[in-house]
Design a protein around this nucleic acid. Structure first.
Length: 581
RNA sequence: GCCUUGGUAGCUCAAUGGAUAGAGCAAGGGUCUUCUAAGCCCAAGAUGAAGGUCCGAUUCCUUCCCAAGGCACCA
């Protein structure tokens, strides 16, 4: 629809080309005005041309319209400072209904991505505790974005990066050990900065059930060495294979057993949470494997040979300051251990070598300072800067009894995703997370969500779907079935409410496309609310089922089209579309 | 101090540089004999401040104010 309009405009402005002295004419922007009195579509092309042509925009618009010819346009008028507003014929709109019915669950999909491989990494929470509500937001954003990209013709790969190496893992092991010894009745001092959450007590119980008290005297000598402290690459790199290093570390610290046990159990917990939150991953990528495969070493060597990683003051630095970062960053510390940046270099090298044209990382907003150096890494590895897209997800401010609940695993007090989705429901929870731009703060009032859950907008949308289903049940009782679309007189759909509804249905495709281009999935919740508002208004004013069979048939088909869009939208959101409520 | 992201109605949030800045919640008034009132209708209410670019700015640029976050050989 928009395309034929664009071509017609292009044709009409051709004659201005000579006045542009060979320069390209400005590209034609066709937008959907907020208000329908400004047309179904409008263009500002006359305004854009006016300064160059030194003529008033309204005059130019007149000249354009003289040459303009497009069969789907009923009326075109000049308005305001020089906009051209187009009104599309009723028939064109009515013809959209059978199109939607034919495409069904594919309506709104496209081949915008042309099968391009795109990777999206999200959540990637450290396996040191259950997911909290902030992770839930990232999970919802990532999952829905992935759904929409898939729907738009991209070959999407969803991945979770497991940080199973590092200081936090040592801390985790120590914390579990303390809980374990506690369980055995020993008096232990809980490690400083340990993970105080009650979940580790449960893990300790599981451990006890599996091994009894046989680990009582283990892990004494561990002082943060081993895998958990980061591998000593600097000295060992030449002589030893990484796998041997790990084996060595394992022997050095019996703490390793506690770490592995805790990590595995907590990861399973996370996987279960995500599964129940309806978030699916294609791969779980372990950081440890980057050490085992030698990729960390290799990627560092590669950048060393390019002169991008250099030695200074006994450490090895990434030259990132040249490409946007504030300063250079340490990759290998003076003690020989690698930093997290080393892992991330190797990981992103690995991603791009797998053939992804675009790599999307979804991070908590507290990591925003990390973007320039990661982009710099991507560039140093020989890929375009723009091929890494970082989406920041702002923190969730959890309100409870009107007060902000402090978050963070260190405090030991945080609201888990599990808690929220059990209390509020997965549907409401996911919808809520997608009602805001991801980089805007989200205030989640838990009490309100629990107590007034019927006020949640997700029910408003679902209710529209249930209502339409109800109409179809009623229709069947009356013996009115959905007739074959080619036997229905759609020209009967001519009142304003019906045509507005159809126009909104048309916008579904545009909304999906906009999300695929901007990576801002929150637009879909706004779209669905707008669509269903139009439906509820229509429903209130005009009975679908009446005495006029042909009119009822036409309206039933329109309702069907609305429900298809609702179902597609809700499916992309990972939210159910109930048939009754 | 430097950097990033926000500042829009009483509250929570929208608005590819466009026309009269949209919703929801809260508060006010209506509306179920009729396909589900988890709905609909009416009324009220806002761009942090000052400049600049532009035919046109919530959007882009500069300065200031406020909030959150980041500025490690921590992850």
């Amino acid at each position: 629809m928009k395309e034929s309009l664009r071509k017609a405009i292009e044709e009409a402005i051709k004659s201005f080309k000579e006045d542009f002295g060979g320069e390209e004419l400005p590209s034609i922007l066709i937008e959907t005005p907020k208000e329908e009195k400004f047309g179904h579509f409008s263009t500002n092309i006359a305004l854009l041309l006016s300064s160059r042509l030194a003529k008033p925009p309204r005059k130019i618009a007149e000249e354009i319209l003289k040459k303009f010819n497009c069969t789907i346009v009923e009326k075109a008028e000049i308005a305001g400072p020089g906009f051209i507003n187009f009104f599309i014929t009723q028939k064109t709109w009515q013809d959209l209904v059978p199109e939607v019915l034919a495409k069904r669950e594919r309506y709104g999909s496209s081949d915008l991505g042309r099968g391009e491989k795109i990777q999206i990494e999200f959540v990637s929470a450290n396996p040191t505790g259950p997911l909290h509500i902030g992770h839930g937001r990232g999970a919802a954003v990532g999952d829905v974005l992935a759904n929409i990209l898939e729907f738009s013709g991209f070959d999407v790969h969803r991945e979770y990066y497991i940080n199973d190496v590092g200081v936090q893992m040592t801390t985790l092991g120590k914390s579990l050990k303390a809980r374990y010894l506690e369980l055995l009745g020993e008096e232990v001092k809980f490690p400083e900065n340990g993970y105080p959450g009650g979940y580790l007590k449960d893990v300790a119980k599981e451990l006890y059930e599996e091994v009894g008290d046989s680990l009582k005297d283990k892990g004494q000598g561990a002082k943060g060495k081993g895998v958990a402290a980061g591998l000593s690459l600097r000295e060992e790199a030449e002589k030893a294979d990484s796998r041997e290093l790990i084996a060595e570390s394992l022997q050095e610290g019996d703490l390793e057993f506690f770490i592995k046990f805790a990590c595995e159990k907590l990861l399973n917990l996370i996987k279960k949470d995500l599964e129940d939150f309806r978030v699916r991953f294609d791969a779980w990528f372990s950081e440890v494997t980057l050490f085992e495969s030698g990729e960390i070493k290799n990627s560092i060597e590669l950048l060393k040979s390019k002169g991008i990683i250099y030695e200074k003051d006994g450490a090895w630095w990434l030259r990132s300051s040249g490409s946007g970062d504030e300063k250079d960053r340490v990759v290998i510390k003076t003690d020989g251990a690698t930093t997290y940046l080393a892992s991330d270099i190797a990981y992103h090298k690995n991603k791009f070598e797998r053939g992804y044209k675009k790599v999307i990382d979804i991070w908590g907003a507290d990591h925003h300072g990390y973007i320039p150096r990661m982009k710099s890494v991507v560039q140093s590895l020989g890929y375009p800067k723009d091929s890494l897209i970082v989406i920041l997800v702002q923190i969730v401010n959890l309100q409870k009894h009107g007060k902000t609940v402090a978050m963070g695993k260190r405090e030991g007090q945080f609201v888990t995703l599990r808690e929220v989705m059990d209390e509020v429901g997965v549907d409401a929870c996911r919808f809520f997370f997608l009602e805001r731009k991801s980089d805007a703060h989200l205030s989640f009032d838990l009490e309100l969500a629990k107590e007034h859950s019927s006020k949640n907008p997700v029910y408003y949308v679902q209710y529209g779907h249930a209502r339409i289903c109800s109409i179809f049940r009623k229709a069947q009782e009356k013996g009115l079935n959905l007739q074959r679309i080619d036997k229905v007189d759609l020209s009967l759909l001519k009142i304003e409410e019906e045509l507005s509804l159809i126009r909104k249905i048309y916008q579904f495709q545009e909304t999906i496309e906009a999300i695929a281009n901007s990576f801002e999935p929150h637009h879909i919740t706004f779209y669905l609310k707008e669509l269903v508002t139009l439906f509820h208004k229509y429903y209130n004013e005009h009975p679908v089922l009446g005495n006029d069979v042909s009119l009822s048939s036409a309206r039933l088909n329109l309702c069907k089209a609305v429900n298809i869009v609702l179902e597609n939208g809700l499916r992309l959101l990972g939210i159910s579309a109930p048939e009754s409520m």
